[in-house]
Simulated assay, not measured.
Amino acid sequence: MERASRTTSAGWVSAIGHALAVDGLDIAALFRELGLDTDVLTDPDARISQDSMTRVWHLAVERSGNPAIGLNMARVLRPGHFSVVGYSLMSSRSLREGFGRVVRYQRLIGESSDMMMQIEPDTCRLQFAIHGDRLPAALQSVEAAMAYALAFCRWMTADPIVPIKATFARSEPQDVAPYRALFECPLEFDAPAYSLLMSRQLMEAPLATANDSLAKLHDRFAGDFLARFESDPVTHQTRQVLCRLLPQGEPKRQTVASAMNMSTRTLQRRLQEEGVSFQQLLERTRRELALQYLGQPQLTLFEIACMLGFADPSNFFRAFKRWFGLPPGQYREQVLQDQSEEE
């Protein structure tokens, strides 16, 4: 039976792109060389298959000649790469609490990621794994996660944190220098797992960026997003593809299925299992996006119709009146009036 591919968030792929650029590589060029859709690189809500990213890592190593290229992730730190998960981490009271949130919400970053936190009397071990989908995961992907996590710790504390030990479930590379330069601690290769062993006192120290109110707000956003993602994963993924394709015209079922690496019949069956048809999801997505776009006064009604994939604006006007009982222009006037009164 065909199944949906495990995916990686566009935010994490953006981080990978910045890391590859350190070695002079253009991730868009790598995507094109591999026959992958480059549109996902500019869509913050997109998801990219894990196998596609595995192929990108392999090609990046081949083109750069740098098998330690994953460690570049420590040099491109941006909280937005984790989306709401990153902001949730930033507002946590301690690194331990923050990485607890990363463990809880990690599927939003990548469905193949598997991070664990083990607490001992004096230490805290962050353990990392990236599971392959149809292809074995590239070792650079898990080393990238380790490098990014350490860089985040150093950035959050404004301190040059040094782990007690870094372990790698791989043989020792020919050139260990990049690993020594980044981790600055004893390195153990051929270990049972990839991990960073940290001081528990350091992990539980208060953070200057702590904000309980923001942390609760981010938890709610991340929790809601995760609940939708886990309960209806194919519906969620299909909606993201539709959002990306709609500005090009009404997406065909076959085009969407191809973008998700499955057959049209499989897509139809998987959506039915989650209680929705392709046409229902298309209409629901258009309806939700229409409300978002109409709240942006700089967009004309014609532009909104095009962004929703309507070839003729009159079709958009009729659809909107069917959905909400009034024309889009009248709806916009009411929304903008309400906004001005609230101000």
Results as ranks from 00 to 15, higher is better:
residue 299 L to N: 14
residue 281 L to C: 09
residue 53 M to V: 13
residue 226 L to A: 12
residue 116 M to V: 09
residue 168 F to A: 03
residue 7 T to C: 10
residue 153 C to S: 09
residue 220 R to V: 08
residue 280 Q to P: 00
residue 185 C to I: 01
residue 16 I to K: 05
residue 152 F to H: 07
residue 342 E to D: 13
residue 99 F to K: 04
residue 338 D to A: 15
residue 187 L to S: 07
residue 150 L to Y: 09
residue 63 R to D: 01
residue 112 S to M: 01
residue 223 G to W: 07
residue 69 I to G: 04
residue 10 A to I: 01
residue 125 R to K: 08
residue 142 V to L: 02
residue 32 R to L: 15
residue 233 P to G: 01
residue 329 G to P: 00
residue 194 Y to R: 00
residue 2 E to P: 12
residue 306 C to V: 10
residue 20 L to V: 11
residue 302 F to T: 13
residue 34 L to Q: 11
residue 82 F to S: 08
residue 301 L to G: 14
residue 262 M to T: 07
residue 237 Q to G: 08
residue 117 M to C: 10
residue 10 A to L: 02
residue 254 Q to H: 08
residue 211 N to R: 11
residue 88 S to W: 03
residue 100 G to R: 01
residue 64 S to M: 05
residue 200 R to N: 03
residue 54 T to G: 13
residue 21 A to N: 12
residue 236 H to Q: 13
residue 301 L to T: 08
residue 295 G to W: 00
residue 289 L to D: 04
residue 280 Q to I: 00
residue 251 P to S: 04
residue 108 L to G: 03
residue 166 A to L: 03
residue 109 I to L: 15
residue 98 G to N: 06
residue 21 A to R: 14
residue 193 A to M: 07
residue 322 R to W: 00
residue 340 S to K: 15
residue 205 A to D: 03
residue 329 G to C: 00
residue 191 A to H: 04
residue 260 M to F: 08
residue 288 E to V: 06
residue 88 S to E: 11
residue 26 D to E: 13
residue 284 R to C: 02
residue 52 S to C: 10
residue 22 V to W: 05
residue 241 V to E: 04
residue 88 S to P: 00
residue 106 Q to W: 05
residue 335 V to P: 02
residue 253 R to I: 07
residue 46 A to L: 02
residue 54 T to Q: 09
residue 132 G to C: 06
residue 66 N to A: 09
residue 110 G to F: 05
residue 209 T to V: 08
residue 30 L to F: 11
residue 25 L to E: 01
residue 17 G to L: 02
residue 18 H to T: 08
residue 201 Q to C: 00
residue 187 L to D: 08
residue 296 Q to Y: 03
residue 20 L to D: 09
residue 107 R to F: 04
residue 259 A to I: 00
residue 106 Q to D: 06
residue 230 E to W: 08
residue 283 E to M: 14
residue 193 A to R: 14
residue 258 S to K: 13
residue 331 Y to P: 04
residue 172 E to F: 05
residue 2 E to F: 03
residue 123 T to N: 10
residue 176 V to C: 04
residue 145 A to V: 07
residue 300 T to R: 11
residue 107 R to M: 10
residue 101 R to T: 01
residue 130 I to H: 10
residue 13 V to Y: 01
residue 327 P to M: 02
residue 298 Q to P: 04
residue 255 T to S: 14
residue 264 T to W: 09
residue 171 S to D: 12
residue 26 D to A: 12
residue 145 A to R: 10
residue 316 F to E: 01
residue 234 V to I: 12
residue 246 L to F: 06
residue 276 V to Q: 03
residue 35 G to H: 07
residue 14 S to C: 05
residue 166 A to Q: 04
residue 315 N to G: 12
residue 315 N to S: 13
residue 137 A to H: 07
residue 34 L to Y: 08
residue 252 K to I: 00
residue 253 R to T: 07
residue 127 Q to Y: 00
residue 262 M to C: 11
residue 41 L to T: 01
